[in-house]
């Protein structure tokens, strides 16, 4: 797709009903943003517990499978909250996001993080892998989510 066509779509998204509606309200954007932040904290908790277990920092006497089973629901819950609040936030300032480097870093790492957690980390936890491999996937997962969160915050500064 040509980039001008892509930009047309971005403008279309910004002019969408939801985008328009959020921009017309003084309170809506900050309120959605607050719940976005809460979603991040919830997902963050699940990531920290699971990845720090893999890194051997927390809950060492519990198996990684057990920690995953206890945190999985909250990971999904946080992610769902983040996506369902993130989309309206994006629609309300799609053009600004398009020109923001922080936004593209965030989206790339987000997609990477989701793929990594669901297709690599979680399936590997269920197998018996060495503690070195556990540390590796825990460290990778944690780093990716840190970048997602930090670059997400930077969208607001650009």
């Amino acid at each position: 797709m040509e980039s001008s066509q892509f930009l047309d779509i971005i403008y279309l998204l910004e002019d969408s009903f939801i985008g328009e509606y959020i921009r017309s309200s003084l309170w809506l954007f900050p309120v959605i943003q607050s719940f976005h932040l809460l979603g991040l904290a919830i997902l963050g908790g699940a990531v920290v517990l699971c990845d720090f277990r893999l890194l051997g920092i927390l809950l060492r006497s519990e198996s990684a499978i057990y920690v995953l089973s206890q945190t999985r629901f909250w990971f999904n819950f946080g992610l769902l909250l983040l996506i369902s609040t993130g989309i309206p936030l994006f629609l309300s300032e799609a053009v600004k996001c398009y020109y923001s480097r922080a936004f593209w870093i965030k989206i790339s790492c987000l997609i990477l993080g989701i793929i990594f957690v669901f297709l690599v980390r979680n399936p590997l936890i269920k197998r018996n892998i060495s503690s070195f491999a556990q540390k590796l996937i825990g460290g990778l997962s944690f780093s990716v989510w840190v970048v997602v969160a930090a670059s997400g915050r930077w969208i607001g500064f650009s």
């Binding site: 904290a41 963050g44 908790g45 699940a46 969160a149």
Partner: peptide, 8 residues
């Protein structure tokens, strides 16, 4: 990030 660690 620290909010996420604390609250999470």
């Amino acid at each position: 990030l620290f909010i996420a660690i604390f609250f999470g």
